[in-house]
């Protein structure tokens, strides 16, 4: 059997006497897969993702990357947060460069070249010298994405990264992120509350129950919608149907709350 790229092996998590994940949780994520975690508020999505990043440790079980249990955080698993995603005292370009600050295997030249490359990729080259407070919220999230890419993360962990953006910016960034993920061959674990966002971005949507988190559904989106996700896809009946199906699942998962 081939070792999966990223895997949860019977993971549980407790905070004191609060069970976040009670039933041992196992899933595996393939290399270059875009996985979206969807679930009711407080069910433990962030916690699961932080465990991948090494920012929390499982109470039992293990999370493995390429067969090896993950330890503390390192640059192979990059995080993009919803807020405070970039450093305000560094310019856009310096923020991206900071992603490689602790990499000893790159020369200064290589770092600068990578910085410019990723600034270009996320469309921020013209804003290189701006400070984050002078650019829009969407641009700040792109700074964080470019920083994570430049750092050389193989796995990008994104916790509601577009949560604070208006609908239009959000759609644009979704298209861009999906394109970047395809082009740069990244594995992404993405948390959102927005069903449309989940279906549009994901190769696979995992729907969680209320806390303690259990997997309610594991839906292969690419099988149904294909890997290419142009903006027009949102208007297609297939997308609409799938969105509704996932929405129903999420309502069920939320259970008697509704």
């Amino acid at each position: 059997m081939i070792e999966p790229y990223l895997a949860f092996h019977g993971v549980t998590k407790r905070f004191g006497d609060l069970d976040v994940v009670a039933q041992p949780f196992s899933i595996s994520v393939a290399r270059n897969e875009f996985v979206v975690f969807l679930g009711p508020s407080g069910c433990g999505k962030t916690t699961l993702m932080r465990m991948i990043g090494g920012l929390e440790t499982p109470s039992s079980g293990a999370i493995c990357l390429e067969g090896l249990p993950v330890g503390g955080p390192d640059h192979r698993r990059g995080m993009v947060f919803q807020s405070y995603s970039s450093f305000p005292w560094l310019t856009v370009a310096e923020n991206v460069l900071f992603g490689m600050r602790y990499r000893k295997d790159l020369t200064e030249q290589q770092k600068l070249a990578r910085r410019d490359n990723y600034l270009e990729l996320v469309g921020l080259y013209d804003f290189s010298d701006a400070y984050p407070n002078k650019v829009s919220g969407g641009m700040r999230q792109r700074v964080a994405i470019a920083r994570t890419l430049a750092a050389g993360s193989d796995v990008m962990l994104m916790d509601e990264p577009f949560g604070a953006l208006d609908a239009q910016r959000r759609e644009r960034l979704q298209v861009e992120l999906r394109a970047i993920q395809r082009r740069d061959a990244k594995t992404i674990v993405f948390v959102t509350h927005d069903v449309e966002e989940a279906v549009f971005l994901a190769d696979r949507v995992i729907v969680f129950s209320k806390r303690p988190a259990r997997v309610m559904a594991d839906i292969d989106i690419t099988e149904r919608l294909g890997a290419e996700r142009p903006l027009e896809l949102r208007d297609s009946p297939e997308f609409f149907q799938l969105r509704n199906a996932v929405l129903r699942l999420l309502r069920e998962a939320a259970g008697d709350e509704e």
Binding site: D74, H75, R77, W89, Y102, R103, R147
Partner: peptide
């Protein structure tokens, strides 16, 4: 805390995190 965690995921050790991120912030 996000700043600290960003630094950690970029491979900074405690001293580097304090100096380059926390102190700066």
């Amino acid at each position: 805390h996000e700043y600290i965690e960003i630094a950690h995921t970029l491979g900074a050790n405690t001293r580097q995190t304090l100096r380059d991120v926390a102190f700066r912030a």
